[in-house]
Amino acid sequence: MSGTDHNPFAEPGGDPNPFNDPSVTQVTHSSMDPVDQYNPFPPQSSDSLATHTTPYQPAVLQPSTEPSPQAAAAAAQANLLRQQEELERKAAELDRREQELQNRGPTGKENNWPPLPKSFPIKPCFYQDFSEEIPLEYQRVCKMMYYLWMFHCVTLFLNLLACLAQFIKASSYGVNFGLSILWLILFAPCSFLCWYRPVYKAFKTDSSFSFFFFFFVFFCQVAIFTIQAVGIPSWGNSGWITAFTMIRADTAVGCIMIVVAILFTMCAVLSVVLLKMVHSMYRRTGASFQKAQQEFSQGVFSNKAFQSAAAGAASSAAQGAFQGNN
């Protein structure tokens, strides 16, 4: 019982006091501030507060940002000028593209004939490419027609020189020389447009109308070749009759005219041979006169010039009938 009745809070001399432990007394007598007295905002001096205080600035009214009428008018004028420059630039670009399309022609490709230099003021008028546009079985004959046209142009030029020599020998042959100039200027471009280009287009598109047009014009060309080879006097041709007549007066001039007569004869013979070759190929293509008529009617009615002319005639007739009824 004596152990049970012992007082744990008795003075020293009995059991030791647990609060007298050195670790506990060190904490209770420490100079550190207790947790409940900690101030997270340490005091600051008045000088530091003065340096960190933002001074008072009075409100200042900002001037109005709306532009004056003069400035608005100047800005509008500058905007109009800029738009006008942009429109002019676009118009120039459209003109350039339109010119390129005109140079390319209806094929959509740039024309390459006649082969003229880039700096030349006259641009090519046609597009020509045998390997691309002409079928393989027609290329040989089409090229021969082209070579015949060039041979004819060279013959006409030599005919002009022969007639010039004849005119120099005797001034009475001035009419012959003048007509030789006319035949060169007339037949060289017309033969290209009237029978070479139609046969080129006929081989290219298998057009019955182009074939019929070529046959009609080229038959007339064969007759002209024959007349030129014969050489009727005072017709501007150095044919056989004119050459044999001139050789009696001047041998040199007569020999030159005989050479030209031989060239005209070759043109006539080659034209007959090529006419037969083209006709044989035409019969194998399945072309006919009915197809030619159909192509001609479609081409005429689809022509814008014909449509505008027909519309103008119809409107004029309607107006005349209306006025007559009134």
Rank of each mutant, 00 (worst) to 15 (best):
V269P: 03
R248I: 08
N17L: 09
P106G: 04
L116K: 04
E295P: 13
R197K: 05
S31Y: 06
A223R: 00
S234L: 02
Q77K: 04
D33Y: 15
F157L: 13
N7S: 08
E132N: 14
D36P: 13
F219W: 05
P16S: 12
F214Q: 02
D129L: 03
D47S: 15
S271I: 02
S315Y: 13
E133Y: 09
D36I: 13
V269R: 01
L263I: 00
F296N: 12
T242F: 00
S30A: 10
G324L: 13
A287H: 11
A71E: 11
E100N: 07
G320A: 15
Q84P: 00
S288Q: 04
S315V: 14
R104W: 06
S238I: 00
C267P: 00
S64P: 02
Q62M: 05
Y200C: 03
D15H: 12
R248A: 07
G13F: 05
F214M: 10
I262H: 06
F41H: 06
E88R: 10
T242Q: 07
Q319H: 12
F157E: 13
F9H: 05
R97K: 12
N176F: 00
E100P: 02
F130G: 10
N7T: 06
W195Y: 05
Q221R: 01
T226P: 00
Y138F: 15
P40E: 15
C153A: 15
Y146L: 07
T54C: 12
I185Q: 02
N112C: 07
N103P: 10
W149Y: 14
W149R: 03
G105Y: 06
Y56W: 11
V269N: 03
R140D: 12
Q84S: 05
H29F: 11
Q221F: 05
S48T: 15
Q319M: 13
A309N: 14
T25P: 07
Q37D: 13
S238A: 12
F216R: 04
Q70T: 13
D250Y: 01
S68M: 06
E295S: 09
F213T: 09
L156G: 01
W240H: 02
G239K: 00
P22N: 09
E85L: 05
Q102T: 09
Q84H: 02
T107Y: 03
V24S: 07
N325L: 15
G178I: 03
F209L: 15
E88H: 11
C220T: 07
L148V: 04
P135S: 13
M145Y: 06
Q298H: 13
C153F: 13
F187A: 09
P135Q: 15
M144V: 05
A72G: 02
A92W: 08
P124L: 06
Q139L: 05
S234M: 04
P42M: 11
R97F: 08
G178T: 03
Y282A: 14
I224W: 03
Q44G: 15
Q84K: 08
E86A: 08
S64M: 03
E88K: 10
L186Y: 08
P40S: 15
E86Q: 11
G236M: 01
G236A: 00
Q307K: 14
I168K: 13
K276A: 04
T51A: 09
L81Q: 05
K276C: 11
F306S: 14
L94V: 08
G105E: 02
F289N: 09
S2K: 09
A313D: 11
Y196E: 07
K169W: 11
I168G: 11
L136F: 14
E11V: 12
Q83V: 01
F214T: 01
G299P: 08
R82T: 03
F216Q: 01
M277R: 06
Q139D: 08
S23W: 10
E100S: 04
